[in-house]
């Protein structure tokens, strides 16, 4: 499904605020959003995108 330009624009803006995240994450995230909006995604798709996120363990709970 072709993503609505508004969703693409929103993704661009949000991902621009996360320059620390890899190209691979950004690509997979876009792909995940497309899959979610077409109602055709699996847990494995979500897990893969999550695991690509870099996080700091120093963050307080």
């Amino acid at each position: 499904m072709q993503l609505d330009p508004a969703i693409s624009e929103a993704m661009d803006a949000v991902l621009a605020g996360h320059p620390d995240q890899s190209e691979n994450f950004q690509r997979r995230f876009r792909n995940l959003v497309e899959l979610v909006l077409s109602g055709n995604y699996q847990d494995a798709d979500v897990r893969r995108v999550m695991e690509l996120l870099s996080v700091s363990l120093e963050v307080d709970d």
Binding site: D4, A6, I7, E9, A10, M11, A13, V14, G17, V33
Partner: peptide, 10 residues
């Protein structure tokens, strides 16, 4: 954030 941003644009 993506959802919120998209909602604003839409």
């Amino acid at each position: 954030a993506t959802s919120r941003q998209a909602l604003d644009i839409l």
